[in-house]
Structures are given as structure tokens and as C-alpha cells.
Design a protein around this nucleic acid. Structure first.
Lengths: 114, 114
DNA sequence: TTAATCACTAACCTTTAGGTAACTACTATC
DNA sequence: GATAGTAGTTACCTAAAGGTTAGTGATTAA
């Protein structure tokens, strides 16, 4: 019997794996979209991302900060506020997010239109 | 106290949510990459995607088929073979996959180079 | 005085994703 | 006859993700 020799595609798979490790999950991209659209405060972000809970948002913000995609600033007046902002590094994701958005529209049309 | 008025970004968030529902998870994009690189058989795909188990591959292939991203063909000779292939619809993901790959490379450089 | 806002955290629970090992039925090779 | 490959499935289990509820301590608006 023939042995199957798989085509090697690790040059594509390894970087994609790296990217997915950082941005996969239900929420990270959505939070990033909200912040780049100008939402800075915890509750603003929470309101703008449908169905997210405070606990999950809190955790995801920490993850995003760790991966250098957002910044957390404490604004020290009365009362103390906290503001989140997108880092320059997160802007390297903009094309990816746009593709995701376009594809979502396309896929929905495909599924509904059949 | 000021009420926070979140910027509305649902026009971006909703399509991205749709896209993520279909392609998020650890494996789907990687399997799609393997198939578009020419791997057709179950075991070829399994060998080309690091660490995936037969059970997970089997389930993910079914999901991808349901979402019209791959096709499953039964080749009826001795012995019966099964071949998976990418659909035209899955090709609409190619730019997205490329972006993911590029970003993975960029992000790795950023993390290591700091 | 009461209630609400802000930015969370803790304790607890459920759901989903994913992993392990064994097994099937057929074919092919040593 | 033994072993290995093919394309999975089944049962069982763990880990990770995510959800629910409540609460904190400060401020402020009605």
C-alpha cells in the first residue's frame, strides 16, 4: 500500500498557530474593535460588546495588556478613572480585523442566500 | 456624574462575531491550510497538523463541511478512499489566512525583540 | 436618604473543548 | 500468521472558558 506523504505546510501553520494563541477566543477581537472605536472606560466597553460580563471583560483586558495590544492608564483625579487605549502594536491587526469583518458579511450572505 | 455613552461599533462587531462563530477555535484554520496545501486524506491532514488527534480532526472536518468550507468525497475503488477538498467558498478566506500568518510572524518578532 | 455609577473581585457553577485509549472492518505487506 | 495502515467511532475524563450572583468602597445625583 502507498504510504501517504503529507504536504508540509508548517511554514504557514506555525505562524498562524502563534497568532491564534494571542487573538483567538470569543472576545479579544471584539474588545479591540470597541477600544479602537474610541471606547476607553470599562463600562463603555462592557456596554458596547454584546453579552460580555464584567468578569470576562476584566480577564480579557488583562490578557490584551500582557500581549501589548492595549494600555491601561490610571487618571488620577476625583474620582479616579481608568482608561484603556489601543497600542501602536494593536494597529498591526487592523487589516486582519477588516478581513474578518468583510468575511463575516460575505459568509452570512452565502449562508442566507442558499 | 457623567453617564458614559459608549461609541456604537455594532456594524463592525456583528460581522466579526459571525465570522468568529465559524472559524474560531484551535484547529479550523490550520486544517483549512493543510487542505488548501494539497492534503486530501484523513491521515495526511492529521500528520500535517501538529498535535491534532483523530477524534478532534473527525469532528472539525464535519463542522467545516457543514459550513460549506470543505467537501468530502468517497472514492469508490479498492480500497475505498475518502478525499477532502476546499470549496470555492473557502477560498474567500485566503486573504484572512494570509493576514493571520503575516501577523503571527510580526507578533513573534515583536515579543522576542523586546 | 436612597439609589446608582465605576471598576472591579470572589466564590461558585455549567458548558464546551479537547485528550486518551480502545475498538471496528477492511486491505496490504512481511 | 503477524503487523500495520485507513478512516474513523465510542466511552470516558480533564481542563479551560465562560456565566451567575453578590459584594466592595468611593462618589454623586435625585
Amino acid at each position: 500500500m502507498k504510504k501517504s506523504n503529507p504536504t508540509d505546510c508548517s511554514s504557514a501553520i506555525i505562524p498562524v498557530r502563534d497568532a491564534l494563541d494571542v487573538i483567538s477566543g470569543k472576545w479579544k477581537i471584539l474588545i479591540l474593535i470597541s477600544i479602537t472605536h474610541g471606547n476607553k472606560r470599562f463600562t463603555e466597553i462592557q456596554k458596547s460588546v454584546p453579552k460580555i460580563t464584567a468578569k470576562v471583560l476584566s480577564k480579557e483586558l488583562k490578557d490584551l495588556e500582557e500581549h501589548l495590544l492595549i494600555e491601561r492608564k490610571i487618571i488620577d483625579d476625583y474620582p479616579v478613572r481608568i482608561e484603556y487605549s489601543a497600542t501602536p502594536h494593536s494597529q498591526t491587526l487592523s487589516k486582519l480585523v477588516k478581513e474578518l469583518q468583510d468575511w463575516g458579511v460575505k459568509h452570512r450572505a452565502k449562508i442566507i442566500g442558499k
